[in-house]
């Protein structure tokens, strides 16, 4: 053929970037980068109306660590006022109870899958608040309690699994640690200060 000189027309790519900029700005505007993070909790199921107080669902007094926040956002732990910065250590020593103090939580030997017998603490952290308590303080206290549990688990994991941190363990190993230190945080029934005398314990 004679028309060997004819070239392919060049494609003008300038408009493409306009279109993609338009799309880009759309996604920039509509996106929100915030990841949903927070403290996960499981609420207790509503008890049946006619539930009797039986010895089984009554927790022994020494195993309950009461944390109370009153309407002026003051924190009381185990009956005495406590600074928020002290709470974590206090909760840890209550759960671990290294000296086997009869006022702190008791340990009961349990058979844990994959580990064998281990004295598991029966501790329950009971969190009580008033209707006037500020949400910010409430979350701070919750955070401290979770932090106490996390630190205990971390320490145990490092002692048990050759210095590996809790996060680096496999799923099964994490379950073992969770079984040894189960997170028992009870968010007590709401109560007003005026109704303090008639409160029930769950």
């Amino acid at each position: 053929m004679a028309k060997s000189k004819k070239e392919m027309p060049e494609l003008n790519g300038a408009g493409m970037s306009d279109i993609s900029f338009l799309l880009l700005s759309f996604f920039l505007m509509t996106s929100n980068m915030d990841q949903t993070s927070g403290l996960q909790r499981r609420l207790p199921a509503m008890p049946p109306e006619n539930q009797e107080k039986t010895p089984e669902n009554e927790v022994k007094r020494r195993n309950v660590f009461q944390v109370r926040i009153n309407q002026w956002d003051a924190v009381f732990a185990g009956g005495s006022p406590m600074d928020l910065s002290m709470l974590r250590e206090e909760v840890k020593s209550f759960i671990l109870n290294p000296t086997n103090d009869p006022n702190k939580s008791e340990k009961i030997e349990q058979d844990i899958k994959g580990l064998g017998k281990f004295p598991v603490s029966e501790a329950v952290i009971s969190l009580q608040n008033d209707r006037g308590t500020g949400y910010e303080v409430y979350i701070k206290v919750q955070n401290e309690i979770v932090a106490a549990y996390n630190e205990i688990r971390e320490d145990f994991s490092r002692a048990q699994f050759n210095g590996r941190s809790f996060e680096s363990l496999t799923e099964e190993e994490q379950d073992i640690v969770r079984d040894v230190f189960p997170q028992r945080i009870s968010e007590a029934e709401p109560k007003d200060i005026s109704a303090a005398n008639t409160r029930r314990r769950r």
């Binding site: 927070g38 996960q40 909790r41 609420l43 199921a45 968010e187």
Partner: peptide, 18 residues
Amino acid sequence: KQELRRTSALKIMYSARK
């Protein structure tokens, strides 16, 4: 929270900034 318990939506999450 009480209402959620009544409807048995028990898994909750207190949203908080990390």
